[in-house]
Design a protein around this nucleic acid. Structure first.
Lengths: 179, 179
DNA sequence: GTCTATACAGAGATAGAC
DNA sequence: GTCTATCTCTGTATAGAC
């Protein structure tokens, strides 16, 4: 029964979504969860342990989202939504990617999740009769990541990002024999 | 004659490309530049000052690259190259974007450069007769950012990233009336 | 399992000599 | 302009009581 642990992980995701992986302060996490810092260390050993567990958690949630829907546009637009839940997860996931640039340890988990997402999208594209589904899948998922980061960093509005993505999906599937 | 200053800024970009904006340590920067920490503070006042100047510097270099070529694919592929120079700048630029998610201050400069890049690409697309050049420009530049981050975080090879981009350019301009 | 109190280290920043 | 030495604060981590 790891109830407390789960609660702490959720708090960790919230804090990461606010301050980033590298801005995470144990004290702030403790405050967010309404417990003492000592308790955090009791459950996670050290800061690296917190991060490992939290990023795992984020990864799992991302994989769940990802394989949920059977509709291409829905699956891709999923990350571009302004609900607390999604935004939080999307920001945290972006931070995971950004952190992996400077941290070898994170790359494996990141790559695995990315691969799974690509595969899901590829399947849908193949079903839709797109000629190069693998290439197109990588194209669209990478685009979502790019748009997502632009959105979160204030270089594009959410509406516009969704529009760009919809356009990309259209262009990619245009000319394909529909199933 | 701000020779020393420029030298320090170049060292700063190198360090940021290695450890990220949030991993930048003044001591390490000093070591990289072969000077004392005190000298850093003499030139930049404080850590935030270092970052401001360095990110400005990165921004400027990015804008230079960007408006250099008149060829669409070249302009976009520019960031996806494995020379020390480009990789360094590309990583640093990615970090700027990632940091802006958690730092309001950075957003304005980021947005301005992004806008300029979009505009340059849009011009080329319009010349190529693409039907929705503005949308397509945002599409392609966001894609480059997504691919770039994937590359740097080890989720895609450079070759593959270039392939995906080339495919995207092809699909985007296909059907357009060539000038 | 959870808290209070505190030790300890790392990194930012400054003083003052040259 | 540049250095050496050092101060100070913040944040990680632990000890020990309950």
């Amino acid at each position: 029964m790891a109830k407390r642990r789960t609660q702490l992980l959720q708090a960790a995701v919230r804090v990461i979504a606010q301050d980033g992986v590298r801005g995470l302060r144990v004290e702030k996490l403790a405050a967010e969860a309404g417990v003492s810092t000592a308790l955090i260390y009791y459950h996670f050993k050290d800061r690296a342990g917190i991060l490992r567990a939290a990023l795992d958690h984020i990864n799992q949630r991302a994989e769940q989202y990802t394989s949920a829907s059977g509709d291409l546009e829905q699956m891709l637009l999923l990350e571009l939504q302004d609900t607390d839940d999604v935004r939080e997860n999307s920001i945290a996931w972006g931070e995971l990617r950004a952190s992996a640039v400077f941290n070898e340890e994170l790359r494996e988990a990141l790559h695995a999740t990315t691969r799974a997402w690509n595969a899901d999208v590829e399947t849908l594209l193949r079903q839709a009769g797109v000629t190069e589904p693998e290439l197109a899948a990588e194209h669209l998922t990478a685009l979502v990541e790019g748009l997502s980061e632009r959105w979160h960093s204030g270089s594009i509005t959410l509406e516009r990002a969704r529009e760009v993505l919809a356009h990309a999906v259209l262009v990619t599937t245009r000319g394909a024999v529909s199933s």
